[in-house]
Amino acid sequence: MENEYLRRDEHEKLYLKLYEILKNKIEKGEWSVGDQIPTESELCKQYEVSRVTVRNAIAELVRQGFIRRIQGKGTFVSKKVISDKFSVVLNLKEIMMESGSFATKVLAKTVIMPTEDLIEKLEVSENTHVIFIKRLCFFNNEPVILQYSYIPYYYCPRIMDEDLEKNFLIDIIDKVCKINITTIHNYIGIDTLKEDEIQMLGCQGLPHAIMLEQFYYSYRRKVYYTKTLKKHDNIKLFVELILS
């Protein structure tokens, strides 16, 4: 087991690191289709981590389709599943950090009741209070990105008092609300801007925008949802995908 150890500088993401290690084994063919993977307690011993960490890493592998559990027999490497969904990991935080000349303005920060589509998207009951945040991002003083975020109020009432122009929402959720975001599901599409959105973004005559819908999860729990709209202009979004 040389060169396989877990660095513990970021304790909360331990299970994701274990997930990466195990995923690598499958991808490199070290564990091939149909192989039984070691039991939870074997993995605990091998990587010197807690059972919870192993369990979470396994759960993530199952969810991503790399392995499957067979009741009473064990956990096996499954056939390679090719997803029909184009998925990349990206969020506004990274987009903004890439360039220093971004500025953010909070246009709205209020509490609302979820409308029909939000009930579905956030998987909340219809009488849940939801924090609604609307932000406009400027690049060289030009409005470029419009972002709507929706977070159930009970997860993090303190967001209402936080500065969302200088801080990233994901950081507030993590540090203030102590919710560890582990996965972000992203859907990319094209959206037609509404009249008020066209005005805010100043893109008369170009009503189409790139739409990025993101669902933020803490383990299995859906925490919040954002919809990001980038207007049709010559500014490109840069996304770096680091392959382990």
Partner: peptide, 11 residues
């Protein structure tokens, strides 16, 4: 206030 529903004025 959280005993009651909240909406923005543009609803």
């Amino acid at each position: 206030v959280f005993n009651y529903p909240h909406i923005p004025y543009w609803f």
